[in-house]
Computed example of a mutant assay.
Amino acid sequence: MKDILKYLKTLDEIMNKNKDYLIELDSVVGDGDLGLTMSDGYAAAYNAVKDTEETDIGKVLYTAGKSMANAVPSTMGTLMASGLMQAAKALRGVNEMTNETWLQFFNAYEEGVMNRGKAKVGEKTFLDGLHPAIEVIKENIESSLPDISKRAAEAADTGFHNTTTMKAVHGRAATRGEASIALEDPGAYVAKLLMEAFYSIAK
């Protein structure tokens, strides 16, 4: 349980630290509120559970996700909350995080975002930062958690930078058509931060 609480705390901190950069990124392709949405959303998620005595990780994640959804009901806030709530379903009854349960967590997070947003990998979204990291976790599941998380963070960073080869399909960026290809996707940067937080607590 302490690992997931530490992860949520680190997400709160890392989103706040990167708030201005997310605003800067999003102001190019969106409405510029991503930094506030992510910092406020993950703060709400962590604050809702930081003093919990609950030992069921799934229940804790559900509370965190529900609080985030209520705090930031924007598109990206809803997507990230959906990820947490799908992970809550996957980890119901789990009391300890292992390599396998971290993989379950991120797989379910991706599933929740995909189900809610109807996006696919390759469409220049959050998924293009998250999915490569998940593949790396699968490939290295027998390694140590510090090694897995380091490789996952590197893969997410590469995925973020690779969004400059993709044409936007969703959101305001899609209205730019071919001109959207050269732009970095702010959602994929959020995925990169999720993996940076994972590495931070595992190393």
Rank of each mutant, 00 (worst) to 15 (best):
A48Q: 14
T37P: 07
K120W: 09
R116Y: 03
D33L: 09
S67M: 05
T164G: 01
G30M: 11
T165C: 04
I134N: 00
S39H: 08
E24A: 08
I134S: 02
A152H: 09
N99P: 02
Y199Q: 15
A197H: 09
L61P: 11
T75D: 12
G35K: 02
T125G: 01
D51K: 14
G30D: 05
K167S: 01
A173L: 03
K192E: 11
T78F: 01
L22Y: 09
K124H: 06
V28G: 03
V72A: 01
T63R: 13
K150N: 14
M97A: 01
T37F: 03
R176E: 03
G58S: 09
M80C: 13
A44M: 06
D147E: 15
D3T: 12
G41H: 05
D3H: 11
A155Q: 06
T37R: 02
E24H: 13
T101R: 00
A45W: 07
G177V: 03
D185W: 13
G112E: 05
M166T: 04
A81M: 02
S82M: 12
T10V: 14
T52E: 04
G129A: 10
P146W: 09
K124Y: 08
T63H: 05
A45T: 08
L34D: 04
M80G: 01
L84N: 06
T37W: 00
D40I: 00
D185K: 13
H170Y: 12
M15D: 03
S180V: 07
Y189P: 00
M80D: 11
P73D: 08
I137K: 03
L25H: 02
A155P: 06
P132Q: 10
N47L: 09
N70T: 14
T165L: 15
N16H: 14
A156V: 02
K2Q: 15
D56F: 05
A188N: 04
I14V: 13
A108H: 05
R172Y: 12
P186L: 04
L34S: 03
F106Y: 15
N18Y: 10
V49N: 07
L11F: 07
L127P: 00
T164P: 01
A69N: 11
H161M: 13
L103A: 14
Y199M: 14
R116D: 07
D185R: 12
V121W: 01
V94P: 04
N107T: 10
E111L: 12
E110L: 14
M195A: 10
A81H: 03
G30P: 04
G122A: 12
T37H: 06
L127A: 06
Y199F: 13
K19Y: 07
A71V: 00
A108L: 06
D56K: 01
D26A: 04
I148H: 01
T52N: 02
G122C: 08
A48R: 15
V121F: 13
G65A: 04
A81W: 02
T175F: 14
Y21E: 13
L91I: 07
A71N: 11
L34Q: 13
L130E: 09
K59F: 10
F105M: 12
T75M: 10
A88Q: 05
K2N: 15
L130M: 15
K17M: 10
T164W: 00
K192V: 08
W102P: 02
R172S: 09
L127T: 06
